[in-house]
Amino acid sequence: MWTRLKRLYHKMGSPKWFYQISTLCSKWCMAVGSVLMLTGVVWGLAFAPADYLQGNSFRIIYVHVPASLLSQSAYIMMAVAGLVGLVWKMKMSFVVAKVIAPIGASLAILSLLTGAIWGKPTWGTWWVWDARLTSMLILLFLYFGVIAIYNAIENDEMANKAAALLAIVGSINIPVIKYSVEWWNTLHQPATITLSKKPTMAPEMFIPLVLTIFGFYCWFAVWVFARARNEVLLKERRTKWVRALVQARQHKSQIGGDA
């Protein structure tokens, strides 16, 4: 049992194995994610009833909430991947942590933009210092820090370790930041309507939300795999298996061109 686990661990650390398995996983995630997203978005946009208070603008929920949830959990995933890399010296883990950073930041930006757009019909202005939006803004700043570290440190190994450490410290701080921002918000202006907070949502509104949330997670996996595979190709470009892979592709495309 132990040796088996150990073998699995070494396999997971191997870039070649990761490349092969991620190609397969990526296809499945793409298929499942696309079905979920298509169903969820069509259902949410065209079939779900309008909200009695916010009217049709509530349909923004189906992109806003998945983006917010995902960018938050992506930060935690990045920290966990970094921790695994630091403690068990697993190289692939650092690669995953590195590629999550820009994706997570893009989702945080999407969450902020859709939140602002949603705010316009709800509050009458584009930006309100609402607790959730403010926490999301700070999360984006935390992503900026991690991305800045990758850009500033040229040595790859050092950048990976430094960014992992920062992500871990940041994720320890996330609960404190969230708590203090919520406390600050209730102190200054108790918002009458909170975006995306519906404890009693009708099922025909709630199910499409669940669909788009899971759909976004699947697509997120596809994006992480795609970027991680690029990193592997770049790092291993001198190895035999990458060369064989590229040659096989070349060969295939030549045959395709002749036919």
């Binding site: 978005v41 946009l45 049709n56 603008s57 349909r59 923004i60 992109v63 806003h64 999407l110 933009l113 859709t114 757009i117 949603w118 316009k120 019909p121």
Partner: peptide
Amino acid sequence: YVWLSYGL
């Protein structure tokens, strides 16, 4: 608002 959000 809705279409702008979905477009983004």
